[in-house]
Amino acid sequence: MAALLPTAGGTGAPVDAPPASPPAGMRARRWVPYALLAPGLLWLIAFFIVPVWQLFAASLWDPNGSVETGYAMTWSWSNYATAWDMFHVQFLRSLWYALITTVVCVLLAYPLAYAIAVKGGRWKNLMLVGVIAPFFTSYLVRTYSWKAILADTGPVVEFLKWIHVLGPDGRLLATEFAVIAGLVYNFLPFMVLPLYASLEKLDVRLLEAARDLYHGPVRSFLRVTLPLSMPGVVAGTLLCFIPATGDYVNAQLLGGPNTQMIGSVIQSRFLVVNDYPIASALSVMLMATILVLVTIYVSTAGTEEVV
């Protein structure tokens, strides 16, 4: 461990070293932490910093260039305005869908995580496996199977028609409902697991104390359980909201032309239209927006106080 800490002299250094200049061993050791960090840093630089920088640069290329003729760097900030004009509908729709998804996930995951953590008993591990089990199958395959479940001729639609929730021509596929349902399904485990982790540490004696102090179940939940589980809520909402915003699998498989999200737009601009500047501008906008929203959220949620 000593090697990890640059200030931790001693353990291996010669005792009789001249005090004026630090011993050669010490000086070398100062580099050890950086050397240990180097692989990770190099990785980050090569696969994160450089690509992000390139993406940002690409977003300022001449919008009239093309893959075949090359792009000139013209610092075209107007690409951002163009991208917003063309795709603000999908952009806002993505944030909206992600928000609904996150809220629904909290509402579904909280009772589930609470039940596993507090009432699970000897079934706890089995219940957790139940939450994680879907990960054994590919994300894409699971989303495809939702296509079968929600099909016009499938059992869900038949049932909803029978109880007259859906009209005779009603359907679920290629609607907002299907897209959001798919998102909720796919991101629910990301909400359950952090919530479980923080609820599992909940000291039930605190709830007893709250009852002794004349708190009813609602008030003890709001004043004791919820604040104590805030780190889980914050972690879970981030794990849900961020990937849900950029998701495009659900919109593409379960949605229609009027439910496409920004991820599909970026995908098609990059790979189909080959319009790199606009696609890059959209990606940078998405990253920046999420970064800002998350910063505001984390600072207002103020989890440090309750950790």
Binding site: W53, G70, A72, P243, G246, D247, F270, S280, S283, L291
Partner: peptide, 24 residues
């Protein structure tokens, strides 16, 4: 992760863009 997707696309650019990469 949605935030990373942009970066990945950028990475793909670096790989497929070849000559373009220099511009950035």
């Amino acid at each position: 992760r949605g935030v990373l997707r942009g970066a990945l696309a950028g990475g793909a650019l670096a790989v497929t863009g070849g000559a373009l990469a220099a511009c950035g």
